[in-house]
Design a protein around this nucleic acid. Sequence first.
DNA 1: AGTTTTATGTGATTTTTTTCACATAAAACT
DNA 2: AGTTTTATGTGAAAAAAATCACATAAAACT
Lengths: 213, 213
Amino acid sequence: MYAFKNSVTRLSRYKSALKRLKSVGVVKVFSDNLADAAGVNPAQVRKDFSVFGISGNKKGGYQIDELLAEIETLLCKDKVQPVILVGNGNIGNALLNYTGFEKENIKIVAAFDADDNKLNSEATVPIYSVDEMESFIRENQIKLAILAVPALAAQETLDLLVKAGIKGVMNFSPISLRAPDDIYINHVDLEMELETVIFYVFSNANAEGPQRG
Amino acid sequence: MYAFKNSVTRLSRYKSALKRLKSVGVVKVFSDNLADAAGVNPAQVRKDFSVFGISGNKKGGYQIDELLAEIETLLCKDKVQPVILVGNGNIGNALLNYTGFEKENIKIVAAFDADDNKLNSEATVPIYSVDEMESFIRENQIKLAILAVPALAAQETLDLLVKAGIKGVMNFSPISLRAPDDIYINHVDLEMELETVIFYVFSNANAEGPQRG
DNA sequence: AGTTTTATGTGATTTTTTTCACATAAAACT
DNA sequence: AGTTTTATGTGAAAAAAATCACATAAAACT
């Protein structure tokens, strides 16, 4: 349903690699440099750029500044993206204090929790009651939410978010959610990610080639 | 390099869906029930099971208990998996207090940090100096690590982990890491995940069908 | 100005992943 | 016991993703 998702995630990875290269003074990259820095195949880099209409200079590679600008435009980094956080538990709170989003022009503008003891409308990022969530979303026309509530509350919270006008969700709740087709949900499942690591470390699924003698 | 990675991550998702179904009293599932609960195609479920040698009953579907047991064996859930956490910052600390791992038989046995002010060998999960990390890994034969250190320290920390015998890493540091082929690294990039959501919400890349008019 | 070099951009190819579709076998029903 | 029903398991087909390979054009060098 969502086309070239891998290309989009790689764009993000290229961006991060480019910033790193830029920070050490590099001005120009070639597809193989960048591929190397991003851990992919050089043809993949060029193909991805082709998909998004990014072009470089024959023989001259890509000017990092220009390339970054094009990628950042594609990733909507030209203005601050306001996001709300729902669920101020363990993970939610870490995300609230996470400095990584800000440098990517993503700002958590408010958090919401069902537990009244956690509310604090005076905090740098105010924490309001979920009862106020729907009106906040509507009034501020928020389109993005980070969902970090317990599994049991996840689906109903999502329904509420969707009803209020949220169009994209990063979901940390350990449950697959249902939403209309025009809502984009990215499920970040920490247990699953770690279990995948465990599988490859302890299974012999990654034994190379055919087993011999 | 790592075969059927998607099948492995789906296994994890099936497990979680099955547990949920079990918790509400369901005893038996069919490939289409499970597919529905896990958000995939029924043929995908059967194909995945086929890959891992899991079989059900012709016409009778799958007994949840048996199925769960088989999946859990595949995912090495028969014993507690000891993991170390490196980097006790914002994200690291949230993971330390995250209750989700424990119910999956994953236990963070120790944490390490470069900042001496954060050390606490008396805590439920002791926090030691990184200087002690290598010997801890060797002595306890730890194979799994969660890496949540700042980008600048990530590669050298990884090198140290690998040298000490770590074979699988869940990496939260916002940088792609280099490691020998026999080390499995799973990169969880929070900015990237959120940027992907932003892309699909604000680009018109997901407009349906060919543009008309 | 002409030649050589070199890295892009993209069709073609290969590989991987997903889905289809149906033969098969077990259960349910008569 | 025989017939029908129904869901598995898997080859075959389709779709998607990654990689190859080369024509092309711009830069560098003579």
